[in-house]
Design a protein around this nucleic acid. Structure first.
Lengths: 345, 345
DNA sequence: ATCAAATGTGCAAACGTTGGCATAAAGAAA
DNA sequence: TTTCTTTATGCCAACGTTTGCACATTTGAT
């Protein structure tokens, strides 16, 4: 429980001034190599630990970046956060993580917490029903950079890092068409944000391009949970004209739906083919394995953090791309192989 | 980008001293209600935000607790962390999270990061191959409380929050026995830490109690990943005398194993029954649904945070339970219903 | 009217680090 | 030797909050 060692203690011991010790520790060029070495050695010997609060107070910056995400426990998110942590750590930044749990209210609370924690910048993936980012204005007004990823919002000052959800939605629906589906259903997420809306719009476009109609009764909007997948299946089972293919905007919901349909004897993919989204590990557990859209979580996290750090350092205010697109990939698996099974018949 | 407002600005505006403003903002009893109101109103009006660095510097505490976990992306962990965040937030604490990714080296780095961040306390679930907690001594020596949960280590100064892994292992193996298994295999995790060792020992005891032998060839030790489940299946397929039941120390590995066995035509549970551990969401996706041990993540997180906070506030140095046990529960599902299928035959 | 107690507020120092500016010492050019 | 650089270090104030102690004012009791 000994007292904390400060640079003064080191200075006293070496007959130097605190300023010299501070500079020595920081590798300032005007300190001679020999003095620097003595300082560093003594610091280690005395068990000195840097006081970031004093430093933060003095420098008016925190070397901390805040992260707000809908939930931590998805595969994508933990990859993304791992990527951010890697980049941030290397640059000497700490991270503070908070979850909105898909609630705009909780999100607002988190924003103030991070505002009061005086993070130097923010990496945000929005809750699905957030329809305005006015809460972020307090950051933007103070020139604290805000970078959105995955669940983004267009704002002239805030870069976005996303995949092309429109294109991915298009590809998913097109894939089902290529496999022989003609009544293609969509189970989509909250349409307030861009992500699920774009996936839906891509799906619609694909249908139109193939001369199909994206009719109302082939659309279910939900929160995309596993349980809501089950409910969606119940709805499907009650339909007179069932779909022959379903594009679900995330894997958990797709799997909940598939399990329930299977339980009622529906053959997948023969009767109904499925395409999901996210490439969740569960997609390889469900039988048949789920065709889904994969996208690079860790890379997105790294890119987001890198971009944020560059905004923090070079204050090239307007010299950035508004939107960065990352590639996605359709993982073609058994849940969509209807064509093959049709050929057999 | 206006300058930050400080208590001095508020004080000047109201013709008070900074000290009075500070006390007013904190609700100190010696400030009259009317003055307090004026202070709070003016603070809001001016857009004052509390400077926690100055406060931390002055008070020598950070109102931050550090969390170290093996990985964020398991269902259990995100529940546990959600529980911690809830409790910590309510008490006005921030949390800093870091992952060891099961590496003792990365864990050590995280420990120093959090040490330098001067967290007021630590909530830790150890990496699976951590065999010594000497790195934590720097905290313990300074009377910074360290609470272990789930993956724990016995240290007289550090409370543990766990489930009874020994008993759970016993119950899992016993369950398989009750269902008719007589060659019960165990796929266990790293035996360095207590968790997987205890599950293994419980399994051994159950076998002994039923007059069975836990022989070497019925034991596989691995990192318990999904992929290692696949390898385990390959080993099983190569065995002369195959097991008729397998207790796997986590669900991901159990599921990897089951999928591979099914691919080779092994009937589950008829030929080989399975019991997993963790109650991962995947356990309800695999067919047959996996019998597994469920335990309360969120509750464990809440309890851990509550305990840590109580250690921070009352410095009742020695007045705590060394080990807190939380209840677990065997979720009896299809993957272990061998007895029923035996009866049919 | 006098004194004691209670109430409300201010003063000033401390927390540990940092960076502009000043200065001392040493070497180089005249 | 004198003057000018260059190099290495020290001085000092500032960052914003907190708190022990002192002080002033009010209230109530005698």
């Amino acid at each position: 429980m000994g007292k904390e060692i400060t640079i003064y203690d080191i200075a006293t011991k070496l007959n130097l001034s605190a300023a010299t010790v501070s500079r020595g520790l920081k590798g300032h060029p005007s300190i001679s190599a020999s003095t620097r070495k003595r300082i560093v050695d003594t610091a280690r010997e005395l068990g000195y630990r840097f006081n970031s609060f004093a430093s933060n107070l003095r420098l008016q910056r925190t070397n901390t970046i805040g992260i707000i995400v809908p939930r931590l426990n998805s595969n994508f998110m933990s990859d993304a956060i791992a990527g951010m942590e890697k980049v941030a750590n290397k640059a000497g930044y700490k991270i503070i993580i908070s979850q909105s749990l898909e609630s705009t209210i909780k999100e607002t609370e988190n924003i103030s917490t991070l505002f009061n924690a005086r993070v130097d910048g923010l990496l945000v993936s929005l809750a699905s029903d957030t329809s305005s980012i006015s809460e972020f204005e307090q950051f933007i007004n103070r020139n604290i950079p805000v970078v959105f990823f995955d669940r983004v919002f267009n704002h002239p000052k805030c870069p976005n890092i996303v995949i092309d959800n429109y294109r991915a939605g298009y590809e998913a629906a097109d894939h089902l068409f290529q496999k022989g589906c003609r009544r293609i259903m969509h189970i989509g997420g909250n349409q307030t944000g861009k992500v699920y809306r774009e996936r839906f719009e891509g799906y619609q476009k694909a249908l139109r391009d193939h001369g199909l109609i994206a009719s109302e009764d082939l659309l279910i909007i939900s929160q995309l949970s596993f349980e809501e997948g089950t409910s969606a299946a119940v709805q499907i089972l009650a339909m007179n004209e069932k779909p022959d293919g379903v594009f679900v905007a995330n894997d958990a919901c797709a799997i909940g739906c598939m399990l329930e349909l299977k339980k009622h004897g529906v053959k997948i993919p023969e009767e109904i083919a499925f395409v999901g989204f996210n490439n969740d590990p569960m997609a390889l557990v469900i039988e048949p394995n789920l065709t889904t859209i994969d996208y690079p979580g860790e890379e997105m996290g790294e890119l987001g953090a890198t971009l944020l750090l560059s905004l923090l350092n070079n204050n090239n205010d307007d010299n950035f791309e508004q939107t960065l697109l990352l590639p996605h990939k359709l993982m073609d698996r058994q849940s969509s192989q209807k064509a093959a099974s049709l050929e057999i018949k």
